[in-house]
């Protein structure tokens, strides 16, 4: 079991945003985290990566919480945030060096992966630039490269498709599938439901800080009693019915 979230309650101040959220991701599984703006997706992610502390409940990666062994815990996560987080003062090359240093990666191996990815994303020519001057999509690509050279056991990807060109989306999906086959688990939050339906193994549908429904697309169809329906249709129905 790669990621296990158990009755997680948490939020920004005393008032909890998340109310007893539980789900887990097995090795080699890709889970889609679905929900409207403000449903609690990003808050859930912040709790998992350890930027926020849970009021109650636990988050475990490979059976350990962050407090037991923060270094190992963090090393297992590759995080691609929704809005790219970059250093203003570092070049693209230095972002990669920094990642290698901070995660204690083996240089040659990491650079081999990095070069392959940079090539794929057509960034090789820009190694000496400040990524902060890049377009949104190119910044996102930098984050993807940095996350993938870590070779984590759990990828957390927040809204990966916005700003990426169609080629990059295709390449990213391929990369995700490749790593999945090698046993990595992926938690992906997205609003692009068509993409999610195509690539995710299971879904966690969140609303108001709670899990509304969970399971494979077949499970969801059964849950909503809508055979043959797409994720988009089910989601629309759900939103109408609940008055979201």
């Amino acid at each position: 079991m790669s990621l296990k979230v158990e009755s997680l309650t948490g939020g920004y101040s005393r008032i909890p945003v998340l109310k007893s959220v539980s789900f887990d991701i097995a090795d080699g599984e890709l889970i889609g985290l679905i929900g409207l703006n403000g449903a609690g997706k990003s808050t859930t992610i912040k709790h998992i990566i350890g930027l926020m502390k849970a009021f109650e409940g636990t988050v475990q990666i490979d059976g350990r919480t962050i407090n037991e062994d923060p270094e190992t815990y963090r090393r297992k996560i590759g995080f691609i945030p929704e809005s790219p987080l970059l250093y203003d003062e570092l070049t693209l090359k230095e972002h990669i060096e920094m990642t290698i240093m901070a995660y204690g990666l083996e240089r040659d191996r990491a650079w081999k992966t990095a070069n392959h990815l940079l090539d794929l994303f057509r960034l090789t020519e820009r190694l000496d630039w400040f990524p902060n001057d890049f377009s949104k999509g190119m910044k996102q690509k930098v984050m993807i490269v940095c996350a993938f050279i870590i070779e984590p056991s759990l990828f957390i990807i927040d809204e990966p498709f916005l700003g990426l060109d169609p080629l990059a989306i295709r390449d990213l999906v391929q990369l995700m599938e490749e790593h999945k086959r090698n046993g990595a688990s992926i938690l992906m939050s997205t609003h692009v439901l068509a993409n999610a339906e195509r690539i995710c193994d299971k879904f966690v549908v969140m609303h108001n800080g709670e899990i509304y429904a969970m399971g494979t697309i077949a499970d969801l169809r059964k849950h909503f009693d809508m055979p043959e329906a797409t994720l988009d249709e089910m989601y629309g129905r759900l939103a109408d019915r609940e008055g979201f």
């Binding site: 990566i49 930027l51 923060p70 270094e71 987080l85 250093y87 901070a102 995660y103």
Partner: peptide, 11 residues
Amino acid sequence: ESVHFKLYPYT
């Protein structure tokens, strides 16, 4: 203020 240094496995 850098979020990166909060995420790095660097104790």
